[in-house]
Design a binder for these strands. Sequence first.
RNA 1: GCGCCCGUAGCUCAGUAGGAUAGAGCGACGGUUUCCUAAACCGUAGGUCGCAGGUUCGAAUCCUGCCGGGCGUACCA
Length: 677
Amino acid sequence: MRTVVDILEQRIGRALADTAGLDHSPAIIRTTADPKFGDYQANGVMAVAKQLRTNPRKLAEQVVAKLDLGELCETPEVAGPGFINLRLKPEYVASELLRINAGDANRLAIKPTEMAQTVVVDFSSPNIAKEMHVGHLRSTIIGDCICRLLEFEGHKVVRQNHIGDWGTQFGRVILGLWHMCMAEKRQEENGEPLYFAEELKALRALAGDGQELHALCTKIRDRHENDWRADKDPEEGDGELVFGPFLQGFPERPAEEVWPRIQMAYQYVNLLEECVVGMGLTIPTRQAGVIDYKDLGRHVTPMLQDRAKDPRNRQEWLAWNRVRELTMASCYAVYERLGVMLGPEHERGESAYQPMLPDVVDSLRDTGLAADSAGAVCVFPPGFQTKEGEPLPFIVQKSDGAFLYATTDLAALRYRVGQLKADRIIYVTDARQIQHFQMLFKVAEMAGWDRRNGRKAQLVHVTFGSVLGEDGKPLKARSGENVKLKDLLDEAVERAKAVVEEKNPDLPAEKKTQIAQAVGVGAVKYADYSNNRTSDYVFSFDKMLAMDGNTAPYMQYAYARIRSIERKAQSKGVDIASELAGMETLDLSEPAELDLGKHLARYSEAIEAAIADYKPNCLTAYLYELAQKFSTFYTNCPVLDAPPTKRPTRLLLCDLTAKTIRHGLSELLGIAVVEQM
RNA sequence: GCGCCCGUAGCUCAGUAGGAUAGAGCGACGGUUUCCUAAACCGUAGGUCGCAGGUUCGAAUCCUGCCGGGCGUACCA
């Protein structure tokens, strides 16, 4: 990729260095704040002048005298304390537009990098036994955008969906299945409603009511122990009579029956665990004797994770695998609506690293990096402290022997560098995990796991802020639960549909539906992309679906208007393709034409900026400005009724604007464009 | 306590490898449809860039302190 800025930087930088007698001095090319200063300015002269203790204006004059920007710019002007102002020649802008026009609409005359890397991008990472909620939105779409940008830049991108399917949640999923099993048994035998469904509601309702909550939890615990004892075979151990057969049959059961139940049972387990903290309730276990009821999930996790050593856990593993399948099926439905390019081939969940975990810990021990501390195996990377000012451990194995996300992340990192041959690994997660990743990267460096053949892979944590509700707190549904992504998209599409009905009632129903999909989903994505990734933003359907301002509908509308012109041209017998094909000169004499033309020629700058900091809002800002400039052009410069000498230029501007908007929206942001709205 | 992030117009936000007079949208006020989609365009009003110092030709941007908010801080992810 080579932008005008790069060329100016190079030429002016060299002239500056020569004049000053330095090896190297950056020209510091920036776009001007005000068009009256031209299009670009070079700020580097003043810094060099200071260094040389010389007059900056004089130095700037000397640099300008040396410069030859003949074909690019008008004569540079020295202004203010030592700025060099640069104004692009219309002929240069015209030649750039013709060059873009002559090339592939999917490249828009932007060349791929010559330094292609293998880049692993870790994003989305949904959790097992849950549907995707707003918390997954940003990682999923920002990650997807980063992949699209890097692919466009010419890198080999390896998408990794690091599904949360191992760790303690594994134990909880099985525990959820156990409740489902027992509840179904009671339903069959006594016609009782599924208790976890009833009690889930009750637990939620009782939040804050200590006494009643305690009573309910005690009742649950008592029944739990009874059911567990009743399921005990004196020879084989627990679970052999009822739970075993349940698990065996589980993978065959139809999705629409079990999927909702699993989710509910899993939520039940999670909520119950929270509720019983501090209640002093206990439960007997086969292996560890009597333990606190809240720790049951954590207790069964390492037992089940050990399945390689205990073939009796195979059923649990098969059932869990089925749960994962069901989970991913629901995720793929969401990915498809979002236009996110993730498929089964990108799945590599935490569980995939399970066989490598013991070796991670052993290696760290062998090299002396890890040591036992309070029963857990820990690495103490320098520079991290606990509340008490003690060194903060990066725990790779818990005192009960279970592995946790630190272990998995290290195994994944090692795999990505070693097997996937990553030159760069990008983790797209919310900002709260920043300390974890700082420690992870530090430990990986200490262990040398970030190197392959002596070359260091670049490790990047791309963070983002939270999605907030209108009240400024993290977005939640009325019920207090996380908002499901599916519901969010449904509502956006529904609202978009209402607008289409209002604005364009005569369109065929099928078209309206299609437009509503594109506008609704596009609005949600665009709103996210157009906000600075690092800050929190307030989610508002009204704002994201507004026709004014930096929104998806505004962008899509601009595109649709151009397509409308092109359709109309065709119906008048104008063959756009042939009219544009042989063009050799453009007439950019109208200010709106030149302004739009200049902006079109700068698409690559926006892409470069977006890639440099992994910031999609650089791209949306460019596109918005483009659409605004087009709208100005549109109101001032008739296209189809233009004089014959002007029409080809205007058609070209329309066509390139459409191509650029389509490319940015559809290829890079994964937002659909529409032909009409 | 320590660490990280944030504080910019009434509201929601852009803008940090230091650059000229700090930008949008919403909201407010005013204008533009015999003409390619008015889901649009044009204009006006609105700011001690949290506060106080410092660094320098120049600071929203870098440094220090303070105030206010968010997040994290040993076996969750």
